[in-house]
């Protein structure tokens, strides 16, 4: 989903902000797959989810006035209206040949690199998978090294060592001084020997 790519040759944005016009005329299907349209559809989907969910909330018969369904209906209806508004804006932009506005504080659409983003995501997921199996120190070392790599650092061994020291000291401080419980995992024998807990 490379919605950041220009549909046609992009014309320069007139004031730095606001959608940049592209050549009007033919509009390929991909023009409709821009992020504004997808956002609007996502919001509408979310509204539908919360609306349908609201009809499934059980109401106790003894409770007279407005019950637990009222506010969910209010919120999901509001969300649906917002989604509809966003969709109208997005469709109008496509029809008039405008591309989505660049992010706040940027003059044009920055290129996005999905590799580093997915590596960051995978590192956080790895933390979930490893935390209670391998323990906090190991899983956080993996997380640290993964994020550092995602941000372009190539000294992987050094990153892992720094991550390990940071995680180890953090584990130590948080469990010994601040009274939090964290999984020791495979290092538990060593940590217990060092900390006596």
């Amino acid at each position: 989903m490379k919605d950041s790519q220009p549909i046609h040759t992009p014309a320069p944005a007139p004031h730095g902000r606001g959608p940049a016009p592209v050549h009007a005329g033919e509009r390929p299907l991909t023009a409709w797959l821009n992020r504004d349209v997808l956002l609007a559809l996502g919001v509408l989907g979310l509204a539908a989810f919360f609306f349908v969910g609201a009809t499934r909330i059980r109401i106790s018969p003894v409770y007279a006035h407005i019950g637990p369904r009222f506010f969910p209906f209010l919120v999901s209806t509001g969300l649906a209206l917002c989604g509809a508004g966003l969709l109208i804006q997005a469709v109008r932009d496509v029809l008039q040949g405008r591309r989505p506005a660049p992010p706040e504080g940027e003059t044009e659409d920055p290129p996005l690199y999905w590799g580093p983003m997915l590596l960051s995501l995978a590192s956080v997921v790895a933390q979930i998978v490893l935390l209670e199996r391998a323990g906090f120190v190991i899983s956080s070392t993996v997380l640290f090294a993964g994020i550092a790599a995602a941000f372009g650092s190539r000294t992987h061994l050094r990153n892992a060592v720094i991550g390990f020291i940071l995680s180890f000291v953090t584990y130590w401080a948080f469990t010994q001084w601040l009274g939090l419980r964290l999984p020791g995992g495979v290092l538990r024998p060593i940590l217990a020997w060092l900390g006596g807990s």
């Binding site: 997380l143 640290f144 994020i147 953090t170």
Partner: peptide, 26 residues
């Protein structure tokens, strides 16, 4: 930046997990 964000995320995961010691939170 790599170390800054790596550190932030380590503490983000730590802070979230230590709320309830729950992987669902993560």
């Amino acid at each position: 930046a790599p170390y800054l964000y790596a550190g932030i995320l380590v503490f983000a995961a730590l802070g979230t997990y230590s709320l309830n010691n729950s992987l669902v939170d993560l």
